[in-house]
Design a protein around this nucleic acid. Structure first.
Length: 272
DNA sequence: TCCTTATGTACAA
DNA sequence: TGTACCTAAGGAC
């Protein structure tokens, strides 16, 4: 379930269990074995996120750089060592300390890198709504000069880091903006609202560890409908609701493929 | 049991 | 634009 909120939550969850503690590191699946051997027994000195990238610090040894890609999964287990389940053979990396372990499966990236290499990753990522010091003006500069659609721009990690297919669809619905509108046709006021909305939605995503975007007044309860949670685990307006009726205006939600990803929007609520 | 799909990205042509 | 990569769940049979 990896959009930026997941990764920031993972950083927090790693810090809570492992920060400043020596940890056991292994790679049952094998692809990370050499680095795991170097790190085994070392102290975890940091855990941070930028967009969808996770960095686990190990002092002078560098950082474990993790990117979940589309399929990557992380499972924590908070059990006494005597009850710790043996890892399955797809676990790329297991980190363990007394009373806690975490398994990483199916990541696109899991590699030990240097400070310099970490810096290079930050340099190619845009501002992240979940990093308090990041500057939305840098994003606005790119968007306001671009003929690319706002839908494509929001998914471009060099422009803005951490937004994925769900937040893209949902923030454009919430702001009433058609996904095919060009970046340069977005007004400054619209951009300010999009950024502020992403900050709020993604912070809530970190808190709840899932994506909910439906405003209180639009929940099924508030609208007198039976309770419902969408099958990806949160409550949303348009994501994966193709051919269903819009919660607000009843228009059929449309879907289209854009740069190999599924786009969802309501033609009734979102303006060109 | 097989097929499809998925909240992602990099690289080749 | 297409393809490769990594894993697991759900649905069709």
């Amino acid at each position: 379930m990896p959009e930026g909120h997941t990764i920031h939550r993972l950083a927090q969850d790693h810090r809570a269990r492992f920060l400043a503690r020596p940890v056991r590191v292994s790679s049952p699946q094998g692809k990370f074995s050499d680095s795991a051997a170097l790190l085994d027994g070392q102290v975890m000195t940091g855990a941070e996120a930028h967009g969808k990238h996770l960095f686990l610090g190990f002092g002078a040894l560098g950082w474990v750089h993790v990117h979940l890609g589309l399929f990557g999964k992380v499972d924590f287990g908070d059990v006494p060592d005597t009850h710790r389940p043996p890892p399955t053979d797809t676990v790329r990396m297991r980190i363990a300390a007394p009373g806690a372990h975490v398994d990483l499966r199916g990541p696109t990236t899991c590699a030990l890198i240097t400070d310099g290499e970490k810096g290079a990753v930050h340099d190619r990522l845009g501002p992240d709504p979940l990093r308090p010091d990041d500057d939305p003006d840098r994003v606005w500069t790119r968007i306001s000069r671009s003929r690319t659609t706002i839908a494509a721009l929001l998914m471009d990690q060099k422009v803005i880091a951490g937004v994925g297919n769900v937040y893209r669809a949902e923030v454009l619905f919430r702001q009433g903006i058609d996904p095919y509108r060009e970046g340069r046709a977005i007004t400054r006021a619209e951009w300010d609202t999009i950024w502020a909305d992403l900050v709020a939605l993604m912070r809530e995503g970190v808190r709840n560890n899932r994506i909910d975007t439906v405003r209180p007044e639009h929940t099924p309860e508030a609208m007198g409908r039976p309770p419902r949670v969408d099958d990806h685990g949160g409550e949303v307006y348009v994501y994966r609701r193709a051919a269903l009726g819009c919660h607000l205006c009843g228009t059929e939600i449309r879907t289209a493929s854009l740069a190999a990803r599924n786009l969802f929007w309501c033609p009734g609520c979102q303006q060109r």
